[in-house]
């Protein structure tokens, strides 16, 4: 009897310990369950918030021949369906006037970049190398009997990379101020550099007849491709305009601010109307893409 009684006490202790362990396990499980459920809903909330905060681009464009005999501008806008995954790529390329094959080359550039899509947003240096290779093959084919400028942006999430060669413009309108983002690769910049380094003012550079000549472009051998080594953050209500110099010669960058209220379509219409109103007898081809960024609206 004593043995059984002893055994029974041991069993009781083991049973109590087991019960205690089960209770602790259940309590821990419930605590973890509640914690992860809360954490999960926080993550879901933050994803929801992030989605709400993501900027979406609304895009409009125009491309007109002006008073020229042919259209030497070309452009490309990547499909919007894949915006979340691949972002959007937009470009304007302007065949160099006075040279043969300007139209062929600009179309070739737009098509080649279309074939490169989707582009990796985080490989700007690689893309610039690819653009340089593209320029070298144009050089091999046309031997400087033609060339084109390139202005291209890649918007993904709330950031933008840009690439440029020549003197087409990428303009950011933000807070009532328009800024040309990409430096123009023309002889003016070389003259200004020389004069400023010798401590002089730069009036001479602006009256030099050769100041607008391009020093680099697509179709040149090993051109310098300007590109963003790290992306620029975009904000709600930013407007980005990519355009050929046929646009900015008629509507200077600074005066584009007046058109930036309202939708991208309205902005593009107003810029185009303003160019037409100038009635320039030798109006160059003009092409512009307007991108308006807004929070949480899918266009």
């Amino acid at each position: 009897m004593d043995d059984i009684g002893l055994l029974s006490t041991r069993v009781k202790i083991i049973a109590a310990a087991a019960l205690f362990a089960v209770v602790i396990t259940i309590v821990c499980f419930l605590a973890f369950y509640r914690y992860y459920r809360r954490k999960g809903s926080e993550i879901a909330d933050s994803l929801e918030r992030e989605r709400d905060e993501l900027l979406y681009p609304e895009v409009a464009y125009f491309s007109e021949i002006g008073k020229r005999e042919s259209q030497q501008d070309a452009f490309y806008i990547s499909p919007m369906e894949n915006y979340r995954r691949n972002g959007i790529v937009l470009l304007v390329t302007d065949g160099m006037g006075g040279l043969k094959y300007g139209d062929e080359i600009s179309s070739e550039i737009a098509e080649s970049i279309e074939n490169m899509y989707p582009l990796s947003f985080h490989a700007a240096e690689m893309i610039s190398d690819e653009l340089r290779r593209m320029s070298n093959s144009i050089y091999e084919k046309y031997r400087l009997q033609g060339g084109a400028t390139l202005a291209m942006v890649h918007i993904s999430g709330n950031y933008m990379n840009f690439y440029s060669s020549g003197d087409s413009d990428i303009i950011l309108i933000r807070g009532g101020e328009a800024t040309r983002l990409n430096p123009r690769q023309n002889y003016l910049s070389t003259l200004v550099g020389k004069l400023s380094k010798s401590g002089r003012t730069t009036y001479e550079a602006y009256v030099d007849k050769k100041s607008r000549a391009l020093i680099d472009f697509m179709g040149n051998s090993n051109p310098k491709i300007i590109y963003t080594t790290r992306p620029i953050r975009l904000t709600d209500d930013d407007v980005v305009v990519i355009c050929s110099d046929g646009v900015t010669d008629a509507v200077p960058c600074k005066s584009m601010v007046q058109f930036s209220d309202g939708s991208a379509k309205r902005c593009a219409q107003q810029i185009k109307r303003s160019i037409i109103m100038k009635k320039h007898p030798r109006q160059d081809n003009y092409t512009g893409i307007v991108i308006k960024l807004s929070r949480g609206i899918i266009n």
């Binding site: 950011l172 040309r180 910049s189 550099g193 590109y227 620029i232």
Partner: peptide, 22 residues
């Protein structure tokens, strides 16, 4: 945006400053 754009496109301090001076 001008200072920022020139900063992120420049490969050297000199290039960055030249673009700003322009």
């Amino acid at each position: 945006p001008a200072i920022l754009a020139d900063a992120v496109t420049a490969m050297s301090c000199e290039e960055w400053m030249d673009n700003l001076i322009c």
